[in-house]
């Protein structure tokens, strides 16, 4: 089995502060993987590096064991098949819900292709499917700005799926959701995994437990522990980091 994502010895610092310090991690194809860690552990910077937003100072980042992700920008990583969801839901506020999905839909991302693009029946059907999946079909003509916080989270997940990515990087998807919504998100992510790889960064332990997957604990920019949630939460170092302060 080949790895989806491979990080080895990655370090990255800002003005002397080491946000990521000799980080190594492997995500297998189809794996569901949770990353936890206290604030400032380097979770977001790690995602920035994977998606080409930030260049690491040293270390290797490989996609499908062949593509060097350190040489690729955000758009490039998305075109490879990496989808990213932000901590704070970012949707296109002045576009309709439908258009949000439509421009995220997997297609040629070239300028002219986009200019002369005409929506096919198949694409229209796909959009409706996705809207139904995230339960926004009734709101498809509304401006995204008018959605509730939770609905924006869903819309963003819908956009992510519209990209048809091989790997989803999901940053705190449960933030701002009700308990029921949180559980539904967990179910959705679990159903996606297998077909696609999913990396979830999360604070909410209930949510991580519901995901029932492999967990990596980050601390001060490197991996502190790895294993099942029960395994890592029993480790004294982890307890120290989470509860000791």
């Amino acid at each position: 089995m080949t790895s989806q994502l491979y990080l080895s010895g990655v370090s990255c610092s800002f003005d002397g502060f080491k946000a990521i310090n000799n980080l190594s991690m492997v995500i297998q194809k189809g794996e569901l993987h949770a990353v936890i860690g206290p604030n400032g552990a380097g979770k977001t910077t790690m995602m920035d590096i994977i998606t080409g937003k930030t260049r690491p100072d040293e270390g290797e980042v490989f996609w499908n064991e062949t593509v060097d992700l350190t040489k690729i920008d955000e758009a490039g990583s998305a075109q490879l098949g990496i989808g990213r969801k932000f901590q704070k839901p970012t949707v296109f506020e002045t576009l309709t819900v439908e258009d949000n999905i439509a421009i995220a839909l997997k297609a040629d991302r070239g300028v002219l292709a986009t200019l002369f693009d005409r929506q096919t029946k198949k694409q229209a059907k796909k959009i409706t499917e996705l809207l139904e999946l995230v339960r926004l079909n009734d709101d498809r003509a509304r401006m995204a700005a008018d959605l509730s916080h939770g609905q924006k989270q869903w819309l963003e997940i819908g956009m992510l799926l519209a990209q048809d990515p091989e790997l989803l990087l999901v940053d705190e998807p449960a933030a701002g959701m009700t308990d029921a919504e949180t559980m539904r998100t967990a179910d959705l992510l679990k159903s996606i995994a297998g077909e696609r790889s999913v990396v979830v960064v999360e604070h909410d332990m209930e949510f991580v437990r519901a995901l029932n997957c492999k967990v990596t604990v980050l601390h001060q920019g490197s991996v502190l522990a790895e294993g099942t949630l029960d395994h890592v939460s029993a480790m004294p170092e982890v307890i120290e980091v989470y509860l000791g302060r």
Partner: peptide, 8 residues
């Protein structure tokens, strides 16, 4: 700029 702060 010349003296910009870097970082996330």
């Amino acid at each position: 700029g010349l003296f910009a702060l870097k970082g996330r």
